[in-house]
Structure formats: structure tokens, C-alpha cells
Design a protein around this nucleic acid. Structure first.
Lengths: 131, 131
DNA sequence: CCATTATATTGATGATGTTCAATATAATGG
DNA sequence: CCATTATATTGAACATCATCAATATAATGG
């Protein structure tokens, strides 16, 4: 079977507008061309919540770790990598879950976590427009 | 002109890996394959600090705004887009500056901010490995 | 040097985040 | 049903964050 484990997505990206030639380098007044927001507040809220979840070194390391073990990393695997209590790891995993960045499924007594590729994709796409 | 201001991107998305057939559905012990951290703590600290700076809707909107006005957006331009006090905007800009995501240069009485493309690139690259 | 203006800093207040010990929950195997 | 084990939740202590009013700083133009 071709393209196993992959799918293709086509999307539209707005490019940054070029600075117009008549923009004064040192104008005698400011705010001549007030830019308007193109990132709506509700979108910004959701994306910022995901960035916020990545905004802690331990959580970033957890996600990086999970990204290399699709569905095979249980909580105790994660726990083993850090000098943090079990409740603290559980707390960080909850934050990542609630942001939609990871998902969990229970198999027997263990809970296995994996990265949600759609969520990462959204962030990646946004950064792509900011580069 | 067709597709003005837009470009099309085709990209590949990795779907979650299926659990291999030889993975025990209910193994009698866990952590058989302890993964090790590949993202060093000092790197994680720096990257997480940048993600954290993006982890607020207003700051995300500020960066998005700046990305479309390379070196032409002064603080008052930014201020005009939000219902927040001038000190609050200044505070958010400081956080973005200290994370290395934006830089400022003064021209006359005004201070113009622009996105630091190297910083965005770093985050983009990391997310690229997590997809 | 004085007045004006844009931006930054300070200090305060209320909200949110991080961590752990203790405890609860839920699955498993006798 | 009981003991064991993995994970989650609770509650508390302490740290950090977001916001604004007030004030400081620094550039400019008289």
C-alpha cells in the first residue's frame, strides 16, 4: 500500500505584505498606516493555549519523547526520564492533553500517550507564516 | 493576477503509527523499552521560553502583526490594535524581546519592532521534528 | 532649557502555575 | 473480594504572571 501512515494536506498561506516604497524611514509622525489584526481572537486563544502548553521545558521534553514512541510510551516510561514526582508528571500530561497536543489510551493497567499530529501541524503552519 | 498574496503548500503529515502486531495488547510488565531524552535540558529551556512567550493570545497576535510589517510597526501601531493599556503592551513586547522572538530599534521618538526570523525558524524546525 | 510626546519602569493586586505528599481511582490477578 | 500496581486527583505552599495607575526616561522641537 502506498503512502502508508501519511496523508497529504493542501492549504493556503497568506504571505507577508511588502512594505510600500512610500513608507518614510523617519517620519515626523507615527502610525501612518495602522495595521489590523489578521489573527482572530478565538484562533489566537486556541493556538496560544497550545504554545503555552509547550512553554515548559519538561512538557516540551515529554512531547519530544512521545513523538519518537507513537503509542508505545506509557506514563512510567515518561516518569523514568525526569527527577519529578509521579503526580507532577501526571499534571504535565494533563495540561498537554487539555491543550490537545497529546492523547492517551489505556491498555490494561497502563496508559499510553502519543502526540496529536494535527495539533502540532497547526502550530507548525502558523510559524510557517511568521518566518 | 492569479493567487495574489497567497501560495500553496503541499506537505506530508505523519499519522499516528499503528501499534505493531507483536506489541502485547496487555503486557505483563511496562517500560520494556525505556526511551531516553534526546532534547537536552538547556535546549529545552531556551525553546520552552520562546514557546511560553507565544503562549499568550495578545503576544501571538502581536508577533503575527509584526511579521507583516518588517521594521515598520511602532509601539503605537501595536497599541492601537488592542484594548489594553500602554504599559501592558510594553510589558508584552518586553517578554517577546527577552525571549528573543522580536527585536526593537529606535528611530526618532518611536521604537519599531520586528520579528526575529532566526528564532521563529528554531521553533519551526523543532515542530517539524515532532509532526 | 522647557514642553511635549512615545515608550519604559515601578509597584500593587488578583489570578494562575509548579510541585509534592497524601489519597483516590481503576484495572489486574490471585 | 482482596492485594497490588499504575495513574489521577486533591489540597497546600510558594512562585510567577497579567494588568493597570502612577511615574520615570529619553528624544524632539521650540
Amino acid at each position: 500500500m502506498a503512502n502508508q501512515g501519511k496523508r497529504f494536506v493542501q492549504l493556503t498561506v497568506t504571505t507577508p505584505q511588502p512594505i510600500p516604497d512610500d513608507a518614510q524611514p523617519t517620519p515626523d509622525r507615527c502610525c501612518a498606516m495602522p495595521p489590523s489584526l489578521r489573527l482572530p481572537t478565538n484562533e489566537a486563544d486556541e493556538l496560544a493555549a497550545m504554545f503555552k502548553a509547550l512553554g515548559h521545558p519538561v512538557r516540551l521534553q515529554i512531547v519530544e519523547l512521545l513523538s519518537r514512541f507513537g503509542g508505545q510510551a506509557c506514563v512510567c516510561d515518561v516518569e523514568a526520564q525526569f527527577s519529578l514526582s509521579q503526580p507532577t508528571i501526571s499534571h504535565h500530561l494533563k495540561i498537554l492533553r487539555e491543550a490537545g497536543l497529546v492523547a492517551a489510551d489505556q491498555r490494561g493497567l497502563w496508559v499510553y500517550y502519543h502526540v496529536n499530529p494535527t495539533a502540532v501541524e497547526q502550530l507548525w503552519l502558523l510559524l510557517d507564516t511568521l518566518r
